[in-house]
């Protein structure tokens, strides 16, 4: 399989590159990136060929590309890849507006290429076990879900995450889609209403995007769920943050801490003197495996454009709700 990476703006590009380099069935042809200085750094660090323009990489006879640009550039790169008849794995959130996301789908359909949204948490065994518990009925009827995707502010790693123009927002845009997708996937149900408080409570002097966000959403099946997407972990926290979910049912409760498998490391002189190096399975690897299988088998991937789109609707509804100080309905005509 000949694979390329369009842009290294998203830090996940580095993880994907590191994994793909080690798999014999994959030839990582190279990456495109705009900034020459950054590009040379990544090229050296990962032993990759750099293409200055996406078009040059897309004419290398690729089986698939991973779009790892800033959120607001996804449309541009997805359209180029689709026109070149190359299937796509796209970072989350899939875009920053519904219109841009819809144009991405149109481009893929027009050109007959597959589109997968990168929701790695679906491939985390912890989340899979929660989904199985929900689906098996062992928890009984579900009351609700308490969901947390906390992190530190990511701007130290990539400045654009805290730039409204390029990211489309802050913490809400960054994190809500992960939990929204898990909820949709656990229950096979859409989010129909969103209430949210969103503000820049943690870095009011430093950034101009939201850094605190709390959502209380309703699903079509009546389940209520909270989503805390705040960049509320300090930069000196032992790790970037965490992803936790508790599903509370009439017959049982499941408590998930997806990255609980870690050591406690105390290391003098390290960037984090106390840290939590993980030893659990890497969900990104399983995500890539599914994408590569779907390419090999010429089938739709298990996580689709629509999954990315529905999750984006939840994030955008959160901004609307916070603005209106009222719950916002998300219409799903198919539900009647």
């Amino acid at each position: 399989m000949r694979i390329g990476i369009l842009s290294f703006a998203h830090l996940h590009a580095e993880g994907y590159a590191a994994l793909l380099k080690t798999w014999p069935s994959v030839e990582l042809v190279g990456f495109s990136h705009e900034g020459a200085e950054e590009a040379r750094h990544y090229a050296a660090a990962y032993g990759l060929r750099w293409f200055g323009r996406p078009q040059d990489l897309l004419t290398e006879g690729l089986d698939g590309v991973i779009v790892c640009s800033e959120n607001a550039r996804h449309l541009e790169l997805v359209e180029q890849a689709a026109e070149a008849k190359v299937s796509i794995l796209c970072e989350k959130p899939i875009e920053v507006s519904l219109e841009a996301a819809q144009r991405m789908r149109a481009a893929c359909e027009r050109n007959g290429v597959q589109f997968m949204t990168a929701f790695p948490m679906r491939f985390a065994p912890a989340a899979q076990s929660v989904q199985a518990a929900v689906r098996s009925g062992e928890l009984g009827a579900i009351y609700g879900v308490n969901g947390i995707n906390h992190s530190e502010i990511p701007k130290a790693h990539r400045a654009w995450f805290a730039d409204k123009e390029r990211a489309g927002g802050g913490a809400v845009m960054d994190h809500v889609v992960h939990l929204a997708d898990l909820l949709r996937w656990y229950f096979g149900a859409e989010v129909t209403e969103v209430y949210a408080e969103v503000d820049n409570l943690f870095y009011p002097q430093e950034v101009a995007v939201d850094t605190a966000g709390l959502l209380l959403v309703a699903l079509e099946n009546g389940v209520q769920a909270s989503i805390d997407c705040s960049w509320s972990r300090p930069t000196w926290y032992p790790r970037w943050g965490h992803l936790k979910m508790e599903v509370v049912g009439e017959r049982g409760t499941v408590v998930m801490d997806a990255f609980a498998q870690h050591l406690h490391l105390y290391s003098r002189g390290a960037a984090r003197p106390y840290s939590w190096p993980g030893f659990g399975p890497n969900p990104d690897a399983a995500l890539l495996q599914e994408w590569l299988s779907s390419l090999r088998e010429h089938r739709a991937p298990s996580v689709t454009w629509n999954d990315g789109y529905q999750a984006l609707r939840v994030a955008l509804a959160a901004y609307q709700s916070a603005q209106a100080q009222a719950p916002v309905k998300i219409p799903h005509p198919a539900l009647g």
Partner: peptide
């Protein structure tokens, strides 16, 4: 302001609530 959701058991007095306060 406050916004709250409560879900009640299909059978019996069980319930679960989450409230969002500003």
């Amino acid at each position: 302001r406050i916004f709250a959701r409560v879900n009640r058991a299909t059978d019996g007095p069980g319930q679960y609530a989450q409230a969002l306060l500003r």
